[in-house]
Design a protein around this nucleic acid. Structure first.
Length: 347
DNA sequence: TATTCTCGCCCTTTACCTAG
DNA sequence: CTAGGTAAAGGGCGAGAATA
């Protein structure tokens, strides 16, 4: 079977250092509908935007009065020339409604990069920053939000969870998953989609044409209070040694599916990273990510058994990844795990 | 009514890339 | 060349539809 990666679309985007992906209005509505109470009287800044094209801008323009927004600002990015900003402050022409006529366009001296001093000045004046940033700059983007202590709602790749800096923020409860987590979203983009199955998916969603690209593993991230973050994950399985093997090189048990976290285990538990989508800090504590964990390292015995079983991963004695023997005694090196503890179980 | 099928959504992890 | 990092494809599953 053809096993060639279909990552062509993103690779192209990555090479061109130009991740222009326009989020669909329906996807924005689905997420932002959960944050209504946060917008009243606030200055909203979309700092990675093409306001002519952006549905973030459109969403807030359309809902300006309904949400009771104080001010809407958006900056546009140009590669190498001065750009501009758009603002809506209120019913400028006093015609009783907020619409295009109330938009004020002002030239910028710089190119509208979210890191430019000019944009940082606007950032300082803003309350909530909302956009779909270039994923290749996700780290920098979030770092800047933290530096200026801003509230935000942003899109990112689910795997950003595993970036060292981002994981640290998650652990410290300074950033969490929004409602939409691990989604496959269709974006409009300047890049041509050359993948047949991908195009088909877009068409099924009602987006026709080569400039629509389905991108999997997309998540919303925020530091605004949302109800979801306070809802307990309902647990229905009780702990037993067969189904939840202990790691061979670390004091903790392995869980392959988030829903199957045992409700009665008080020690350390390794879960897939999709756990973040249901994380409630009142229910669980996040301790670590397996990538950054100091395990005892794999034993020679485990490594031998692993290769004897026909597996071909690159491991050797002392390898730091988690490992265990499953119920059939097969040596397993699981994918990345978040190490958690159930706060509601007493030792 | 029982069984199979389909389709979409959710969840997991593997293949590729690059820096050292 | 290797190890670590990262991006998105693939697998699984369940609800509802279709079929026996």
């Amino acid at each position: 079977m053809e096993k060639k990666s279909g990552n062509g679309n993103l690779r192209k985007a990555n090479k061109a250092k130009n991740d222009e992906f326009y989020t669909q209005l329906s996807d924005i509505e689905k997420e932002l509908g959960h944050y209504k109470q946060h917008f009243k009287g606030k200055t909203i800044f979309c700092n990675c935007d093409d306001p002519e094209e952006s549905n973030f801008w459109k969403y807030f323009e359309l809902n300006f009065e309904y949400l009771g927004i104080k001010k809407l600002v958006s900056t546009h990015f140009e590669d190498e020339k001065p750009s501009y900003k758009l603002e809506i402050i209120g019913d400028r022409n006093h015609d009783g409604k907020i619409n295009k006529l109330d938009i004020v366009k002002t030239p910028l001296k710089q190119n509208g990069d979210f890191r430019s001093p000019e944009c940082i000045e606007i950032l300082k004046e803003s309350d909530i920053v909302i956009t779909n940033p270039p994923f290749s700059l996700f780290r920098e983007y979030v770092a800047q939000l933290m530096e200026y202590d801003k509230k935000f709602i942003t899109l990112g790749n689910m795997n950003a969870i595993t970036y060292k800096e981002i994981f640290k923020l998650i652990k410290e409860n300074k950033l969490w998953s929004g409602y939409g987590f691990n989604l496959s979203l269709v974006f409009k983009s300047p890049y041509e989609n050359s993948l047949e199955a991908n195009l088909k998916f877009c068409e099924q969603k009602g987006y026709f044409g080569k400039n629509y690209i389905k991108t999997p593993a997309i998540s919303w991230f925020t530091n605004l209070e949302i109800q979801k973050r306070h809802e307990d994950l309902i647990l229905y399985k009780s702990y037993n040694e067969t189904e939840y093997p202990k790691y061979d090189n670390y004091d903790g048990i392995n869980v392959d599916k988030v829903k199957e976290i045992p409700f009665d285990y008080c020690g350390n538990i390794g879960v897939p990273i999709t756990f973040l989508g249901v994380y409630n800090p009142e229910q669980f504590e996040i301790l670590d990510l397996s990538r950054y964990l100091e395990t005892k390292g794999m034993s020679q015995e485990f490594v031998d058994a692993y290769y004897k079983s026909g597996q071909t991963g690159a491991i050797s004695e002392g390898h730091p990844d988690l490992c265990y023997y499953d119920k059939n005694n097969k040596p397993i090196v699981p994918y990345m795990r978040i190490i958690i503890k159930n706060k509601k179980v007493n030792p």
